[in-house]
Amino acid sequence: MIPPADAGGTDYSMKITGTQEIKAPRERIYAALTDPLILQRCIPGCESLEETIPHNYIATMKAGIGPVKGIFKGSVHLEDMQPPEHYRMIVDGKGGPGFVKGVGNFKLEEKVGATVVNYEGELQVGGVIASVGQRMIEAAAKMLAAQFFKGLEAEIKSPPDPLQR
């Protein structure tokens, strides 16, 4: 019963999964989730989100985890789009406190009077975020997701504002 020697190289990548139920039709939610203007308003700390070519965006986001705060710039790319059921999001951002890279799969399921959004993803961080904030990232990501969906729900419930369009 000798425990195996651990020479380092431990896998510390983070898996983020969650489920959110929103009272709205699936098509409406799918459209909102892929609409840059709605996303910009809903993503916490998002300062800009510009579509460069279809389904590719450049984003600037102010984010912080505990003592690590900063502005991140990066790209968001959507692929494997199967409206209104599924899409994959690939994020790649850099900023003063380090970098964030991630892949997330979003699956939308119909339910009576509502839609269930299932998301699961993997996140890799580097720089100060990794050395200081790694332990807090899962909790922080959950919090950001909750804020995001809350905003999304509000967007969907309120009638579209023509001035914003």
Partner: peptide, 16 residues
């Protein structure tokens, strides 16, 4: 001192 698979320093301060 722990580095993860990407060589990121996970134990970067005295909290860790």
């Amino acid at each position: 001192v722990v580095y993860d698979e990407q060589g990121q320093l996970v134990t970067g301060e005295l909290m860790d």
